[in-house]
Design a protein around this nucleic acid. Structure first.
Length: 394
DNA sequence: TATCCGTGGCC
DNA sequence: TGGCCAAGGAT
């Protein structure tokens, strides 16, 4: 430790100033109104690697349709994915759905208040478990998310990568020392709020920071260097052939495999062709695996899209059934493919890349009013199915 | 421990 | 404009 470093901060004073600032400056967020475990859970999963502004509308719609764990548990996965459409990281939706069923079957519909039990639920890791325990159950748990990691590593002037396990332990120990007993709910949210409003990654607003006087990075002029960030490799690029196959005004769509990239979402039939020859051959082979013989025609359009770890160019080809013959049903099981009219597309959850394709081809087909109409029909259908189930039960 | 897993907004 | 980043988890 450098001789010129300020002493470690006074935890009591730091938390008092932090809590006072939070009391005056906290944002009004939907999940802060009634912090019950279910709502906190949903919000924390949605907020994983996702900004508050992006989450808010999704949270409202999700809670309206699934106000309870039971409602979520009895919903079809397709419907959960539809409400998650566009939010990204779709394993979160699949895990949430699975976990809801576990909570109903094994915990009587109530989220457990024990960390080891929470950690057994799919989609709940160390951060989310601690967040639920502190925010919903008011247990004295500290959280360590990206915000807190940045704030704490600056306050302590930790120069190492704060994602290293050894550094995480160091930060957690410091946080436990600062946490005022019984105040974990506000303390944790205050740290995260400070990280997202004041202690910003690039240009921290130290001049209005309530704990700037206790920040070692600030004292050392290192607030711009901490936390140390690893440079990431350039994203690889892939080319994918996408097939537009129409029959009688309907379009063939397929469900993606239940795990992996965009798992469980619907998409256009497609094939990567990096090492497999021409895009047309790759696409024809993909249709063949569905039990459909096609001729691949002109390239209609190209769409660029980026994912978290690679970029793609989607090459969209017009396809036609060979000899105009009516195809046997695809080999994949029912429910893994569908012939749909363009106006029915909004019933299905599609990744953003497919939506760009629809838009480029003028297939979105629906103005916002029609979208809402379709949405309403879908909700009515869900409602009828539920009432039907309840009648059978009665 | 490192890699996979989406999307949108920011400068 | 494109690289960077966000209330992480699973493997």
């Amino acid at each position: 430790m450098s001789r010129s470093s300020p002493p470690p901060p006074d935890g009591k004073a730091l938390s008092a100033e932090l809590l006072s600032w939070y009391a005056h400056h906290k944002r009004r967020l939907p999940w802060r109104d009634h912090p019950d475990p279910y709502r906190i859970w949903i919000s924390e999963v949605m907020l994983q690697q996702t900004r508050v502004a992006s989450v808010e509308p999704y949270y409202e719609r999700f809670l309206k349709e699934f106000p309870t764990v039971e409602a979520l548990a009895r919903a079809p996965l397709d419907r959960v994915l539809k409400l998650w459409e566009g939010l990204g990281y779709y394993s979160r939706a699949r895990n949430l759905h699975r976990a809801a069923r576990v909570v109903v079957e094994r915990h009587g519909g109530r989220l457990p208040a024990q960390k080891d039990e929470l950690l057994k639920l799919p989609g709940i890791g160390r951060y989310t478990a601690a967040a639920i325990l502190s925010l919903a159950f008011e247990q004295d748990e500290v959280v360590l998310d990206g915000n807190v990691r940045r704030v704490a590593s600056r306050v302590l002037a930790v120069r190492e990568d704060p994602r290293k396990a050894s550094v995480e332990r160091q930060l957690e120990e410091a946080l436990k020392g600062w946490l005022p007993p019984g105040r974990a709910r506000d303390f944790n949210q205050a740290l995260m709020e400070l990280g997202s409003l004041i202690c910003l990654p690039k240009a921290p607003r130290c001049s209005i920071c309530p704990i700037a006087e206790r920040c070692r990075a600030r004292a050392l002029g290192l607030q711009g260097e901490i936390p140390r960030r690893a440079r990431r490799r350039p994203l690889p690029h892939k080319d994918v052939a996408v097939g537009l196959l129409q029959k009688g005004g309907k379009l063939l769509i397929v469900r993606r495999p239940p795990q992996g990239l965009l798992g469980g979402l619907w998409d256009l039939p497609q094939a990567p062709y990096a090492y497999e020859g021409s895009p047309r051959e790759a696409l024809q082979r993909a249709f063949r695996e569905l039990g459909i013989s096609t001729d691949v025609g002109e390239e209609l359009t190209r769409v660029e899209h980026g994912y978290s770890h690679f970029r793609v160019t989607l090459h969209v080809f017009r396809c036609a059934l060979q000899d105009g013959a009516d195809p046997a049903p695809p080999l994949k099981p029912e429910g893994e493919w569908a012939w749909v009219r363009p106006r029915e597309l909004p019933r299905y959850a599609f990744p953003k890349g497919a939506q760009k394709v629809f838009s480029a081809l003028g297939l979105s087909g629906l103005d916002p009013d029609q979208e809402r109409e379709e949405e309403q029909k879908q909700q009515d259908l869900q409602q009828e199915e539920q009432e039907s189930r309840e009648r059978r039960r009665a």
